[in-house]
Structures are given as C-alpha cells and as structure tokens.
Design a protein around this nucleic acid. Sequence first.
RNA 1: GGCGCAGUAGCUCAGCUGGAUAGAGCAACGGUCUUCUAAACCGUAGGUCGAGAGUUCGAACCUCUCCUGCGUCACCA
Length: 564
Amino acid sequence: MNVKENVIASLHQALASELTPAEIGPLLEVPKSSKLGDYAFPTFVLAKTWHRAPQQIAAELVERIDASGYEQVVATGAYVNFFLDKGAFAQQTVQTILAQGAAYGDSTQGQQANIPIDMSSPNIAKPMSMGHLRSTVIGNSLAKIYAKLGFHPIKINYLGDWGTQFGKLIVAYHKWGSEAEIKADPIGNLLKYYVHFHEEAEKDPKLDDEGRAWFKKLEDGDPEATHLWEWFRGLSLAEFKKIYDRLGITFDSYNGEAYYNDKMAPVVADLEQQGLLQESQGAQIVDLTAEGLNPALIKRSDGATLYITRDLAAAIDRYQKFHFSLSLYVVGAEQTEHFKQLKAVLTKMGYDWAAQIVHVPFGLITKDGKKLSTRKGNVVLLDQVLDEAVSLAQAQIAAKNPQLVNAATVAHQVGVGAVIFHDLKNDRLDSFDFNLQDVVRFEGETGPYVQYTNARAQSILRKADFSEDLTSATVPLTDPQAWDVVKYLADFPNVIQRAAAAFEPSVIAKYALRLAKAFNKYYANSKILVADEQLAARLGLVTAVSQVLQSALALLGVAAPEEM
RNA sequence: GGCGCAGUAGCUCAGCUGGAUAGAGCAACGGUCUUCUAAACCGUAGGUCGAGAGUUCGAACCUCUCCUGCGUCACCA
C-alpha cells in the first residue's frame, strides 16, 4: 500500500459513513509548500452536510483520525494536513531506487503492444531545420517513455521522398543544375535549385506545369525520372543520417512516402467499391461534410495521388503489420485538419482502429516572427545550431574544467543536450520564435543544468570511495532540503505516467529541472562527505538522485556525462 | 468569415483533475568559492493571470461575450 492510499484510508476511517475511498482520492491534494504538510484534505465539501464552518470540521477530523504512522496530522484553516513519517518514507524511497536502479519507474502495463511513431520526416533535397528537430526529439522521447512502460514503440521516419516537389526539382536540375555541383554539396545545391525554381515560377507559371508533369512521369515509372529521384534521395539520406548520429537517434524504419507508391491503388479501389469516392471538379474526393470537415482529395484531376492518399495507404499498412494499440503521428499543429480527415476517411472505410490513431501536434517555430520556409530561404539549419552549441560547450569546458579528459565527447553531449532539452522543456503546442541565445544557453532551466547536477553527484560518489552496502543504510534523512529531494524521487513513476498519458515529454523535462534544483539546494546546504553515522544514508540519497536524473535525461534522449 | 491553438512579472515560460499568501528561469541589483565541480546557491525588486459578465463556499483554470496574435479552410506536404 502506498502512502497516498494510507492517507485515504485514514480519512475514510474518520468519515466512514460519508465518503468512500474512491471519493476521497480525487479530493486529496499536495500542498504547494511542504511546510504545510505532504498531503492535504480540504473540508469544504463537508460544510453543507455538517452545517458547520470548514475550519471547525478540519479540527474535528483531526481529533478522529488515528495519527499513528504519521509524523503529525494537523488542521490548518479548512485543511487537514498530513505530515508523513519522513524517516520511514525516505528509507523506503531510496532503498527502492537503489534496488531497482535504471528499472525504477518501469512498468509492464504496455504488454509489449506495438506503437508505431511517425516522426522526424524530413523532406528529401531539403536541409533539416529546427522544425524537423521538434518532431524528431519529441517522437524519440515518446518512444523511450512508452518503452519504459512496457510498450513496443516503432520509430518510423516517414521521409518526404515523394510528391510534386520532385517534379519541380527535376525540372530545376535540368535547367540550372550540374552533377559536379551536387556532388560537392548535395543538399545545399539541391536546395539552391529548388529555391531558384520557385523564384522563376513566380514569373513563369508554366514551370509549375512542367514540374507536375515530371512528377507524373516519376509516378508512372519513367526511367530518367526514377534515376534522378534515387540519386537525390540517397544523397539526402546520407546527410540526414549524419545529423541523426549527432543527435543519437535511430529509426526502425525509413519507409517514406515513396514506399507507398504501389500500395495506394488497392486503397483507392476499396474507396471506389464502397461508393465513398466521388468526382468533383475533375478530381476524386471523399465527402466529409457530415463530419464537419473539408473533402479529402484522393486524386488530382490529372490522376496523380496526394498526401492523404499515401497516408491512408500507410495507416492501413501499419495496422496490418503491427496491429497497433496506438499509432502516433508527431507532426506540426498546422496539419491538425489533415489528420482529422485521415481518421474520418478510415472510419468511413470501416476501420474501427482509426480511433487509435493519435496526432501529436506541436507548435510552430518561427524566425523573426515569420514561418520558416525552405522555398523563401528563411531557414534555421539544424546542423549550424548544433555546431554552435557544441563549440560554446567546448569553450565553457575550457574555461571551467580545462583538465577534463574526454572534453570533445562531453562538449558534444552538453551542446547537443542543450538543444534537445530546450526543445522538450516547454509544452509541445507552444510556438516559439527561434532565438539562438536561448537554445544554446547552459545556465538556469536548461539541459546542461540537469547534466551538471548529475555530474556533481557523480563526483561525490567517486570521491566517497565507499564500499559499504548502501542498501543497509537505515539512518533517516529528515532535514528540509533532503526531504524535498526524497519526495521528488518518489514521484518519478507517477511523472512518467503523466508524460505518457499526455504524449508530453515536457512533463519529464520539468520534473528533471525540479529534482535537480532540489538537489542543488540540498548540496549547497549540507556537506555530504563527512564521516559520521549518516554518511551511508546521504550517499544512498546521492546515488538515488543520480540514478533518477540519468533515467529522466535518458527518457528525453539527452546524454548524462559523469564529468563536465 | 468558419474551425483550431494561444494571451500569466521587462523577456521566456510553470501552475497536475477549480482550492490555502499566483511560481521558476533569464535580464537588473546585492551577497556566497582556503571546504564534495560557483554550468551552483541565497536575497532584493518586479503581476488589474488580455477585458467583461456568469457558475461556485472558492476561478489563472469551468461557461458565455468581446479584444489581440498565430495556424488552417481541395488539386503542397
């Protein structure tokens, strides 16, 4: 029985005839300040039936409650405040973490159910920008969170390797490109052609028609178009993989949009057979007015397919392969309508598993208040941001810890960690204007702050040179700073659950910051390496903190160097 | 215009299912390294929680209206 259940039971005993444990649970709260207690029960709800002031009710309840097992139970205003037995609770929490190690917070609730995660999805022939970072790191973190809860995530990089833009790119290459240029700097020059194409198309709309025509050729298997496409794709993928290596992120599948090229026909046929397809202005659509949505455009008037056609095929393919319990799409909020349409069409087709598809949207990153646009050249290149962050970390290490042995590796871990953490610490849906100074900051609420806290803990443990078995440490840790740390440690499993339920890595990131802050406060106020009877208890706490910080960072996909 | 997301301290944001004096970080000012890594810690200052009504014992949180910003509204993805 956990402590919360104990508190509920105590209240239930005092209120037997009035509230059931199931009713008491949701009313229970955690006071803002631990000075007020560890759990609080507000008595307002009882005021009507008791015909008395809440303050009096609180006082009376305290009389009735059996306070044994608690440090104390007191009435403060209208609240009944429970103070836990700190020694026992600290002991239990720390020992649990020491015993379970990296498995602390694990659950088997997922029963290895498959969860494909559609993430990252950069477009071929375009550089990876800060926008792609969001999808990549959020998806990666969700995969780790769900894996910890016993699910089986499948990270799918749904590459943007199909569509009209390839027709445009082929036209641009024919008109202005050269093989030599592309070999020298593949993505840079492909991007240059693409941007140039759009500039020219402004003046000469016929170019767009040419682009569409070349894409049609590609779809029909034209050898030249296919050859160029394969070339562009291979070059791009090689560049992307360099960035994924830097981020420390891997994928289970690189099946992009092109992979579904030959899987769309059966879907379209099925739609037709079920009478869901209709012609409108020369195009094939599924009408969704009953669902309050715009029609889903399945085929263009020239017969070419569209984004949603491929997504339908992909969704069905993923279900057939994985029989997923959830299918996540970590895609920008601007595509919300698209996923509503996707689910609506699948539902119309009779696929009840459409309900298990979850669009995990995130806010837009802007630059100087404007949307990032590859076409307009208004991009923030991820590679450059990472370079900048790593070189700043390098400078920081040179200044603060010049004798650090593996400085280059740590600079990489800290720089990249700062960038990833910055992207994960806020609510997914928050939009933000890109600001390099914020992204590469190492002080305050940042990834390096958490990393640094762990490095300090590790440093203590190295210096302690302690061989005693910490799991037998029985001395309680009850001073206020240590107590806050213990409470955060105990909360970790619950935090993971909340993060998973909300598809929200920021819940983990914020938790890591709070734990780090609490530990730094303890560290500043208590000398840990003192040879007294509580040394083992303190080292146990430090070990537990380091373990949980490492676990939290791991869930975010951020490295935890032992020294920095 | 319809739909969606957002509006909390100078800036960037927390605030779990409505609850006890609204919290952090950055920036500003002032402290703390002969002692476990000062990438840290402590303190000062800073707020009509966009505006107005309503529901409630109680609202930053729920409902409605309005204002502002962003996204989106079929042949891009």
